[in-house]
């Protein structure tokens, strides 16, 4: 199954839940937040939210940065 993850196309196993996706990616679930098709996925629903073909995900966490500067790297983009 193909999804878009943090702006890049990616193939993942069929039938994954959001929790399954994070485990598949080896991303620790604490201190991250997940957006699916522009809607926030609440942590409480990670196990019941099943990925669909073509879904677009953003997985974010806290990084260094005090203020806006150009070289912070990836911004959340549409």
């Amino acid at each position: 199954m193909n999804i878009t993850l943090n702006g890049e196309k990616r193939a993942v196993p069929d039938g994954l839940t959001v929790r399954g996706l994070l485990e598949h990616l080896k991303v620790k679930t604490e201190k991250v937040a997940v957006e699916r098709n522009l809607e926030i996925v609440k942590k409480a629903t990670y196990e019941t939210t099943v990925l669909q073909e073509g879904d677009s995900f953003e997985v974010v966490s806290f990084m260094a940065g005090g203020f806006s500067i150009a070289d912070f790297g990836l911004r959340i983009a549409d």
Binding site: L5, N6, G7, L25, K26, V27, K31, V32, A33, E58, V59, V60, S61, F62, M63, A64, G65, G66, F67, F72, G73, L74, R75, I76
Partner: peptide, 18 residues
């Protein structure tokens, strides 16, 4: 203060500020 940015999926060896 910290920024909110995409998790680096490819290179998870990078250390986390927290």
């Amino acid at each position: 203060t910290v920024s909110v940015r995409r998790v680096n999926i490819i290179d998870k060896s990078k250390e986390n500020l927290l």
